[in-house]
Amino acid sequence: MSATGSLRPVLPADILARKGDTPIVVLTAYTTPIARIVDRHCDIMLVGDSVGMVLHGLPSTLGVTMEMMILHGRAVMRGAQKSMVVIDMPFGSYEESPEQAFRNAARIMAETGAPAVKLEGGQHMAETIAFLTKRGVPVMAHIGLTPQSVNTLGGYKVVGRDGEAEKVMDDALAVQEAGAFSVVLEKVPEGLSGRITQRLSIPTIGIGAGARCDGQVLVVDDMLGLFTDFRPKFVKRFGELGQAADEAIAAYADEVRHRRFPAPEHAFADVLAPKGTKS
């Protein structure tokens, strides 16, 4: 059974129907092995453009390309059985015009098999979202802190304070009117995200936006504790895999240097042992 209780993969219409119901569980995934694990527990797997920073060591998401998103999208789709896969449209692939956005969204969906895309922006992207949804491209919107606009925003700051609340609310209403089936609220004050969630008829997915959203998303590497030196306030670490990996690799290196690995049980004999005996 899928995360929503059906015998088929989750689709955008299923997520829309979850408004105000059991919270929607979302994690990023970039590889097939992680996708297979996430798929068992989550409603949505987001192939985020955060892959550029998480897996490729880029300083921001701005250097992520269409080819990278398609490559990782295909990998995640291979591990998806039940969860819905949503793929981020990278910076520069949709801002120029609705037509450009449609060409690239259609390419992502055709080359990966994913049923939906995500793009950043509120009121100024409403026309593009409407253009896509009217042509059969389901869109998850993303407002508040939009990492692709971090240079314009002046850093990774909370969005919605100091007179910005009305604009964020207007962004939310605009993407809903344009046809988005859900909207990510990133680094939005909890009170404001609660008001947006209450007012919208589409689900809100929070990241650093408090507990009143219709669902939550985190970067899987963050919540697993794979980055030992990266601790955003809004991330709860459900594991410390980075520390465990460091200890395991240190133990491996030590055993290799002291010739304790490989041991005899890890090696193959020169001659096959007779049947009925152990080699």
Rank of each mutant, 00 (worst) to 15 (best):
V76G: 02
L272W: 03
T61W: 05
M223T: 15
D221K: 01
E164H: 03
Q198G: 15
G210P: 04
Q81A: 13
I87T: 07
A211Y: 06
T4K: 09
L272E: 15
A178P: 04
R161S: 13
R74W: 02
M45W: 04
V235E: 02
P12C: 05
P147M: 11
T61V: 14
D229Y: 00
V25C: 11
V150P: 03
T197M: 06
R107D: 09
S193V: 04
T152K: 12
V220P: 00
H266Y: 08
V256I: 15
L173R: 15
S279R: 09
R195G: 06
K275M: 12
F261Q: 01
V159W: 00
P262Y: 07
V256A: 12
D229M: 02
M68H: 11
R257C: 10
V150L: 11
G155H: 08
D43T: 12
G160Q: 07
A75L: 11
D254V: 07
M68Q: 12
M68S: 07
A172E: 01
V51I: 13
G154C: 08
A172G: 12
I207L: 14
T146C: 13
V158I: 15
E99L: 01
A29Y: 04
V86Q: 06
G136A: 02
K278L: 15
E186Q: 03
Q216E: 10
L145H: 03
T228R: 13
V64Q: 05
K118V: 12
R195I: 07
R135K: 10
M77S: 03
R260E: 12
K118R: 07
K275T: 13
V38C: 13
V184T: 10
G20P: 01
A17D: 05
H266Q: 14
K118W: 07
A114S: 08
M77L: 10
V158T: 14
K275I: 14
I202M: 01
G160S: 07
A267T: 15
M66N: 00
K275L: 15
A180F: 00
H124K: 14
A130T: 00
M109I: 04
G154M: 08
D162M: 09
F234D: 06
R199Q: 14
L192S: 08
E255T: 09
P147K: 04
A244C: 07
P59Y: 05
A80I: 09
V150Q: 08
D170Q: 15
I108Y: 01
K134D: 13
D88I: 02
M89P: 05
P90T: 09
G122D: 02
R103H: 11
V64P: 08
V256R: 10
P189T: 04
N151H: 14
M45R: 03
M1I: 13
A178N: 00
P9Y: 03
E127H: 02
T4Q: 07
G276D: 08
S193Y: 03
D270T: 11
H258Y: 02
H41L: 13
L62Q: 11
I44K: 04
Q243I: 13
T61D: 11
G194Y: 01
K19P: 02
F234Q: 00
R212D: 13
G210K: 04
